[in-house]
Simulated scan of single mutants.
Amino acid sequence: MKSDITSILPEECISYILSLTSPTDVCRSKLVSPVFRSAANSDTIWGKFLPSDCYEIISNSPSSLSKRLTASMSKTQLYFHLCNRGVLIDNGTMSFGLDKATGKKCYMMGARRLSIAEVNTPTNWRWKCLPQSRFSEVAELKQVWSLDVKGVIETKILSPKTTYVAYLVYKFATSRSGFDKKPVDLHVKLEESDAGRTFRVFLDPSSNIPQFSRERGDGWMEVKLGEFFNEHGDDGKAVCRLREVDNSTPKKGLIIEGIDIRPKDSR
């Protein structure tokens, strides 16, 4: 007489076996049987998929949220909260989340965390609140002739052995100009390396120019700045940059939410 695995092994053993796979495999296993579905919801599994320093990172979020996440959520609930919503950390200048398919770390540097040339000159930029942004403020370009935006992130806070892609997250105000006439240079590199590919794209292309940006599910656009391989997560830095230095073309109307850094092929 044939028996399936659920009649031989207790649910705790099935949970342990599933914890040795991947988040994607665990989610697929829920379709096998009710026993697998129950085992797949175990904290034994999702606790193993949380980064070892997850609670330390969350402790940098606002105190009330940090307490709720660590005290009232199961590890399963916390995992999916970080995948679907993430949390703000470092005084609200950065967000932290997880890639749902792999459990690897994702970060987004808000505009306040970026180095933006002339951002504190009122005639050039202004800070504003937008309800669709996860951050309290975004940077809106009033007018500049030369554009330079840079974000730097320490590789030690990222997941090792992972290829990361950096994206500029942005949109345009109703009145905008300059970004359909001149391309911008997009570049990502590890600080200790001279390597890194530069992309030249139009952020607001006309109909006869290829569109390199894409819409996100949160009401913003994103365009790829570049990618890098984080091998060991040593004390290095990844530098992400956007530049357009043609002083003959004024630019206005760009709204920057931040720079999103997540594992390659995570969406």
Results as ranks from 00 to 15, higher is better:
Ser3Cys: 06
Leu9Val: 07
Leu9His: 03
Glu11Leu: 13
Glu12Lys: 05
Ile14Gly: 00
Leu20Pro: 04
Thr21Pro: 08
Arg28Ile: 11
Lys30Ile: 07
Lys30Cys: 13
Pro34Lys: 14
Arg37His: 08
Ile45Val: 06
Trp46His: 04
Gly47His: 02
Gly47Tyr: 05
Glu56Tyr: 03
Glu56Gly: 10
Ile57Arg: 11
Ile57Phe: 07
Ile57Asn: 08
Ile58Gln: 03
Leu69Thr: 02
Ser72Asn: 14
Phe80Leu: 02
Leu82Glu: 02
Arg85Lys: 15
Arg85Thr: 15
Ile89Val: 09
Asp90Val: 04
Asn91Trp: 06
Gly92Arg: 05
Thr93Leu: 01
Met94His: 05
Ser95Met: 09
Gly97Ala: 07
Leu98Trp: 00
Lys100Cys: 10
Lys100Ser: 14
Lys100Thr: 15
Ala101Leu: 10
Gly103Ser: 12
Gly103Val: 04
Lys105Ile: 10
Cys106Thr: 10
Tyr107Gln: 03
Gly110Trp: 00
Gly110Tyr: 07
Ala111Gly: 06
Ala111His: 02
Arg113Thr: 08
Ile116Gly: 08
Ile116Asn: 07
Glu118Thr: 13
Glu118Asp: 15
Thr121Asp: 08
Trp125Pro: 11
Trp125Ile: 09
Arg126Met: 05
Trp127His: 05
Leu130Met: 08
Pro131Ile: 14
Ser136Asn: 07
Ala139Lys: 10
Ala139Ser: 13
Lys142Cys: 11
Val144Asn: 12
Asp148Lys: 13
Val152Phe: 04
Val152Asn: 06
Ile153Pro: 00
Glu154Gln: 14
Lys156Trp: 00
Ile157Leu: 05
Leu158Trp: 02
Pro160Leu: 07
Lys161Pro: 02
Thr163Leu: 00
Val169Cys: 13
Val169Tyr: 05
Lys171Tyr: 05
Ser175Leu: 14
Arg176Leu: 05
Ser177Thr: 12
Ser177Gln: 15
Phe179Gly: 06
Lys182His: 12
Asp185Gly: 10
His187Lys: 10
Lys189Asp: 11
Leu190Ile: 07
Glu191Ser: 15
Glu192Phe: 15
Glu192Arg: 15
Ser193Asp: 12
Ala195Glu: 12
Gly196Val: 01
Arg197Pro: 01
Phe199Gly: 02
Phe199Val: 03
Phe199Pro: 01
Phe202Arg: 04
Ser206His: 15
Asn208Ala: 05
Asn208Tyr: 09
Pro210Ala: 07
Pro210His: 08
Glu215Val: 08
Gly217Glu: 06
Asp218Ser: 03
Asp218Leu: 01
Trp220Val: 00
Glu222Tyr: 11
Glu227Met: 06
Asn230Trp: 01
Gly233Asn: 13
Gly236Tyr: 00
Gly236Met: 09
Ala238Lys: 04
Ala238Met: 09
Val239Ala: 13
Cys240Glu: 00
Arg243Tyr: 05
Asp246Met: 13
Asp246Pro: 09
Ser248Asp: 03
Thr249Ile: 15
Thr249Asp: 08
Pro250Gln: 12
Pro250Trp: 11
Lys252Trp: 02
Leu254Asp: 01
Ile255Thr: 15
Ile256Gln: 02
Glu257Thr: 11
Glu257Pro: 08
Glu257Asp: 10
Asp260Leu: 13
Pro263Tyr: 00
